[in-house]
């Protein structure tokens, strides 16, 4: 069954359209962007990067960006993980309705969702009213234009990207594995930790990578839910190009954003694999 080594597997040609497309509209512009960040009037230079990193404000922005992306990912994981099981273990109409509930919101634009969240997060918004009537809060609190509001809103937008990869993995888990463990005396906690969790890790990893990459680079959601007083790397990139017309600063900032995103994604992959092995 081993593929023949002497020539390219003909199946590989199926990837050609995607490779050609991405090379043209993604890889090439990306290389040009990165090049602009390190090319000065006298050729190669790391001066723009050095001056970017020497500004403490930019470190604050990097910290903001990573913090928000991490929190959004954690919130999505906490909500998405059990939801994926509910989705996988349901059947018939229940499953159809659940799937629709998760996928249909993707067709609503981010701007529309952000405006909806404004209504929810306002001082007299639904959330505030609910918390006051439940006695959790003494008085109405505004979450709009706060970090909490941003995390809640962004997690809502990106949640399907966490649920769906985990769901697709959970669906493939053979239920007999856990049952067999149970007959051998494994407790539910032990079964979850040693059987279910390791088997779902690839899905979790995919979900984390999706949500983290999307939220580290989000632009519209922060500009509507937290405003101009809270900068992230993505909003700084937008401003450098669109307002300050400083393409080099924009490219440098974009490079920092890209390196961080790739580092975290690759790092979490390595970590997950190690955890999977030790579990």
């Amino acid at each position: 069954m081993k593929p023949r080594r002497e020539r390219i597997d003909p199946v590989a040609w199926l990837a050609l359209p995607a490779v050609a497309y991405l090379a043209l509209v993604y890889a090439l512009p990306l290389i040009m962007l990165l090049a602009r960040g390190v090319m000065g009037p006298k050729g190669f230079t790391i001066e723009p990067l050095a001056s970017f990193l020497s500004d403490p404000f930019n470190w604050q922005v990097i910290a903001n960006t990573l913090k928000i992306a991490a929190l959004v990912t954690v919130v999505c994981l906490l909500i998405g993980y059990p939801t994926a099981f509910a989705l996988a273990w349901s059947s018939g109409w229940t499953q159809v309705v659940l799937l629709a509930a998760i996928i249909l919101p993707l067709s609503v634009g981010v701007v529309v969702k952000a405006f909806a969240w404004q209504i929810v997060l306002r001082r007299d918004g639904i959330l505030s009213q609910l918390m006051v009537s439940l006695g959790v809060w003494d008085e109405p609190v505004r979450l709009l234009f706060t970090e909490t509001g941003l995390v809640l809103g962004a997690a809502n937008v990106f949640l399907p990207f966490m649920i769906l990869p985990i769901y697709s993995v959970v669906r493939l888990i053979d239920p007999r594995l856990a049952e067999a463990a149970a007959t051998l005396g494994a407790t539910p906690v032990y079964r979850f930790r040693r059987i279910v969790l390791p088997l779902t890790l690839p899905g979790v990893l995919a979900g984390v990578v999706f949500v983290f990459s999307l939220s580290i680079a989000m632009y519209v959601i922060p500009s509507l839910l937290i405003g101009d007083r809270y900068q992230t790397l993505a909003t700084l990139v937008g401003r450098s190009f669109l307002f300050m017309r400083n393409e080099q600063l924009g490219s440098t900032t974009a490079t920092v954003l890209l390196v961080l995103a790739v580092a975290v994604v690759v790092g979490s992959g390595v970590l997950a694999r190690r955890l999977g092995r030790s579990a």
């Binding site: 405006f115 505004r142 709009l144 234009f145 500009s223 509507l224 405003g227 101009d228 007083r229």
Partner: peptide
């Protein structure tokens, strides 16, 4: 301050 806007309609 409630917020600082870049999008006037908001």
């Amino acid at each position: 301050l409630l917020t600082v806007y870049t999008q006037m309609p908001q």
